[in-house]
């Protein structure tokens, strides 16, 4: 505000307050009106906030259940493949569901090598008990660990959620040295595969399937 404007404001608009008669009842009446106006402004603000939440919900990308990018409901834990049995292909979810001794895992069915040139689905080789990529020939163990071939890392996994009641009991977790499958507490627990969350496999040099093989030189083993 310029000095000029400031002066004009004082001259033109700022007049001394008319002296209030100061009757108690009237004063309470007027302050009640002020308070109610604030309450109203508050409810209108909450309303705006509510509309904001609605708009946020409306805008947020949302994936339909059982379509790729959303959550896949596998059913109760009893519907999982048995430990040691053949992996189940889920075509729509683009994953292989495996029940390993350490827990259930959902491997993205895209070979980690081919991601740059275009996705290639790998397949399960039942005779040799491993996953094979038909294009680059990389082989992975049932647990998703890299065995051999040109792929840069072990298989990627989607996050599996184990739900008891309405609560997520356990999830697939990535630790610095391994990817931990969720614990299944009871046969009734529900299994969900969240295809919006992917955990990248570890670099092939870290694959446990290589331990002891001549391909990999493990520093610890050398010194021992």
């Amino acid at each position: 505000m310029t000095v000029h404007q400031d002066l004009r404001r004082q001259q033109d608009w700022e007049v001394p307050l008319p002296v209030q008669p100061g009757k108690g009842a009237e004063h309470r009446e007027t302050s009640r009106r002020e308070l109610l106006t604030y309450v109203w402004a508050g409810t209108l603000a909450v309303m705006t906030l509510g509309s904001g939440i609605a708009a946020y919900q409306f805008l947020y990308p949302y994936h339909r259940a059982n379509t790729f990018g959303g959550k896949f409901y596998i059913g109760a834990a009893t519907d999982l493949p048995l430990v040691g049995s053949e992996p189940q292909a889920n075509v729509d979810g683009r994953f292989w569901l495996v029940n390993t001794e350490t827990g259930p895992r959902a491997f993205s069915n895209i070979c980690p090598r081919s991601l740059a040139t275009g996705p290639v689905k790998f397949t399960w080789d039942a005779d040799r008990n491993r996953f094979d990529c038909p294009v680059c020939g990389t082989k992975f163990s049932r647990e998703g660990h890299y065995i051999e071939g040109p792929a840069p890392r072990s298989l990627d996994q989607f996050v599996i959620e184990v739900v008891t009641g309405h609560k997520v009991f356990a999830k697939t977790k990535r630790l610095p040295e391994e990817i931990i499958a969720p614990v299944v507490p009871s046969p009734e627990a529900k299994i969900l595969v969240d295809t919006s969350k992917i955990i990248e496999g570890f670099a092939r040099m870290d694959s446990p399937a290589l331990r002891g093989s001549s391909l990999k030189v493990v520093p610890g083993e050398l010194s021992a």
Binding site: W13, V15, L17, T30, S31
Partner: peptide
């Protein structure tokens, strides 16, 4: 755009405006 806090509160309280009307 021209109403200060005091005038604003007087407005909410239903008090009449001053003259000239701010």
């Amino acid at each position: 755009a021209g109403i200060d806090v005091g005038e604003f509160r007087r407005m909410l309280q239903g008090e009449p405006p001053g003259r000239p009307n701010p």
